[in-house]
Amino acid sequence: MIQVKLFDYEHEKDLEDEMNSFLEDIRDNQIIDIKYNVSASVEEEDEQIYCFSAMIVYKKSKP
């Protein structure tokens, strides 16, 4: 069965840490694809807000 795992963080280091933690439990041959995206917006008083997101597409292992 194909599954996805979504990640969304304001800091790239948080995204990296969470993805690495998830990938520790996934075998290399289970990974189908990884998508990455960065977006930025400007809030009040010219404060920039970043969003670092990723999606891992993988095959769920059989029990």
Rank of each mutant, 00 (worst) to 15 (best):
S61V: 13
I56R: 04
I34G: 11
Y58T: 02
R27S: 10
E10I: 10
Y9G: 00
E47T: 09
F7Y: 07
L15N: 00
N20G: 03
I31Q: 07
M55P: 01
M1D: 07
Y9Q: 02
L23I: 08
F52K: 04
I56T: 01
E24N: 12
F22D: 01
V57Q: 01
D14A: 01
I32L: 06
M55H: 05
I49A: 09
D14S: 04
F7R: 09
K60A: 08
E24H: 08
E18P: 08
D33F: 06
S61A: 14
L15H: 00
V4E: 10
M55S: 03
D33G: 03
V4W: 14
E45Y: 07
Q48E: 06
D8Y: 11
E44V: 10
S41N: 04
Q30D: 09
S21R: 15
E45R: 12
D33H: 09
V57C: 08
Q30W: 10
H11D: 10
D25S: 14
E16G: 00
F22P: 01
P63H: 13
I49D: 07
Y36K: 15
M1E: 11
Y36D: 03
I2Q: 13
E18C: 13
E43D: 06
N29T: 12
S61I: 15
E16V: 00
A40Q: 05
V4C: 05
S41P: 01
F7C: 03
Q48F: 07
L6N: 06
V57G: 04
S61K: 07
L15V: 00
E16W: 00
S41M: 12
L15E: 00
K59Q: 08
D46V: 05
M55R: 02
R27K: 15
Q3L: 14
S41E: 07
C51Q: 13
S41K: 11
P63E: 15
Y58D: 00
